[in-house]
């Protein structure tokens, strides 16, 4: 028996919005420790890694490990039926081919049950080693989304360069060039407005804008985003999900032939 209850169903709605542009379907691996998902996009250039810890749920029970293959467009249809303030409970029997999403209004006067068929998906997992990154940058997630959106107008790629002085995002194309520099903030009223840089060595890497724009769909999940970079390895873009977990995106850098 698997049962997971979230008072704020809006969290799962936002998670879905954050992954459905990159993934058509994915396997949600449920265990005693929580719900994990790891999946690459169709082109195998980026990877989504989601972790929702069991202790972050309002109620969580998972007697046996369960892998739920889910069509994300179908799940999205169901999640749209939930109000943001509804309480969500996901339920599945052991070895089930169905998962039930139950939404309850706060006053418990309306209860909705939606059953969704599960799929058998081929699982392909990558082993991602613990890495000490040369640069770890934290910045407001809305700022990151805006920068990526703005620079996407100039070209297909953005160069992210990090030094002690700050971070520079650059793009160029037919219409011209664009550079956006962010300095480390010295004092801000709110932590979520801060730009912080932990740098061992300067790094400059090139990434495809379209993936960064897809990652930015996670912006509603967290006021801050963390970018981790080292030379010649994939970028990690991480959004914390309240007290319950995180979503990480990995993106292979573009390289000169």
């Amino acid at each position: 028996m698997f049962e997971a209850r979230l008072v704020q169903s809006s969290i799962l709605k936002k998670v879905l919005e954050a992954i459905k542009e990159l993934l058509n379907e994915a396997t949600f691996d449920c265990s005693d420790s929580g719900i994990q998902l790891q999946a690459m996009d169709n082109s195998h250039v980026s990877l989504v890694s989601l972790n929702l810890r069991s202790d972050g749920f309002d109620k969580y029970r998972c007697d046996r490990n369960l892998s739920m293959g889910i069509n994300l467009a179908s799940m999205s249809k169901i999640m749209k039926c939930a109000g943001n303030d509804d309480v969500l409970t996901m339920k599945a029997q052991d070895n089930a081919d169905l998962v039930t999403f139950m939404f309850e209004s706060q006053n418990q006067e309306k209860v909705m049950d939606y059953e969704m068929k599960l799929m058998n998906l081929d699982q392909e997992h990558l082993g991602i080693p613990e890495t000490d990154y040369s640069c770890v940058i934290k910045l407001p997630s809305q700022e990151f989304a805006r920068i990526v959106r703005d620079l996407s107008q100039f070209g297909e790629s953005v160069v992210i360069s990090c030094t002690k002085e700050g971070i520079k995002f650059s793009a160029g194309g037919d219409i011209g060039n664009a550079n956006i520099k962010l300095a480390q903030t010295s004092n801000v009223d709110k932590d979520e407005d801060a730009v912080t840089i932990e740098m061992q060595e300067p790094v400059s890497l090139t990434f495809a804008c379209r993936y960064l724009n897809s990652f930015a769909k996670a912006t509603p999940l967290s006021p801050q985003v963390q970018l981790s970079m080292s030379a010649d390895v994939p970028l990690v873009v991480e959004y914390k999900i309240g007290d319950i977990g995180h979503i990480r995106y990995y993106l292979a850098p573009k390289i000169e032939d």
Partner: peptide, 14 residues
């Protein structure tokens, strides 16, 4: 030319 490698070029399958 600028190439776009796949993630599998960096991380092994498990």
């Amino acid at each position: 030319a600028i190439l776009q490698p796949a993630l599998g070029d960096y991380y092994g399958h498990i």
